[in-house]
């Protein structure tokens, strides 16, 4: 089980890219007493049977890790969300894509801390591939949207050290409260 919310977000985001999505949207909103996250992709999606299976900790498709018997990302997230009195929703349609949405009440003992958000976005945006990422972030005094394609166009690279250092500075400045 992950310790912080930003680790869950990165994990679920990676699932979306690895599924072959060309566009992934990540929304994070902690402007009220709940922290709400949505990860939505346009990947291959899953049918109802597979949706049930991926919530079983002892299911894995065996492709990425042929000898591994567990696939824990989604089951752990569902458990973490539900045991805090939060919500968890997984909707998927073959050929359309997948949405994972969850929330935690901020003041619950077992709610994971948010983590460092600009650092999370840095890892999300640096993840290799040609896919688009749209980040929407809302919080108390915070409201911004970031697109990977725009940053790539402005910086010319998502891997060069100079580009990444500037990107981090940019992302930190977006988290400044109004």
């Amino acid at each position: 089980m992950h310790e912080r919310l930003d680790d869950y977000i990165l994990d679920i985001f990676q699932n979306a890219v690895e599924a072959g999505s060309s566009r992934v949207e990540v929304e994070l909103d902690d402007s009220d007493e709940h922290i709400r996250v949505l990860v939505k992709d346009n990947g291959p999606g899953m049918d109802a049977g597979l949706v049930r299976k991926v919530l079983d900790p002892f299911y894995t498709d065996g492709v990425k890790h042929p000898n591994r018997k567990v696939g824990l990302g989604l089951p752990f997230l569902e458990q973490a969300a539900r045991q805090t009195g939060g919500t968890f929703r997984l909707d998927s349609q073959p050929g359309r894509g997948t949405e994972v949405e969850w929330s935690f009440p901020k003041n619950h003992w077992d709610a994971p801390p948010l983590g460092d958000i600009p650092r999370l976005w840095l890892s999300v945006l640096n993840y290799p591939g040609q896919h688009e990422v749209v980040i929407r972030r809302r919080g108390a005094g915070i409201d911004y949207e970031v697109r990977r394609s725009e940053l790539r166009e402005a910086l010319g690279s998502m891997e060069d050290v100079g580009a990444l250092a500037l990107m981090e500075e940019y992302l930190r400045s977006q988290e400044e409260k109004e």
């Binding site: 890892s123 290799p128 891997e159 990444l164 250092a165």
Partner: peptide, 30 residues
């Protein structure tokens, strides 16, 4: 991720910049 790879990635970006090592790229893998 669970053991803090995000901190490691960020640290390399910051350090390489700090030491002016400009001919470097930072990538992720599984």
């Amino acid at each position: 991720i669970a053991s803090g790879a995000k901190y490691t990635l960020e640290a390399f970006v910051t350090l390489l910049q700090e030491f002016n090592i400009t001919n470097a790229i930072v990538r992720q893998t599984g």
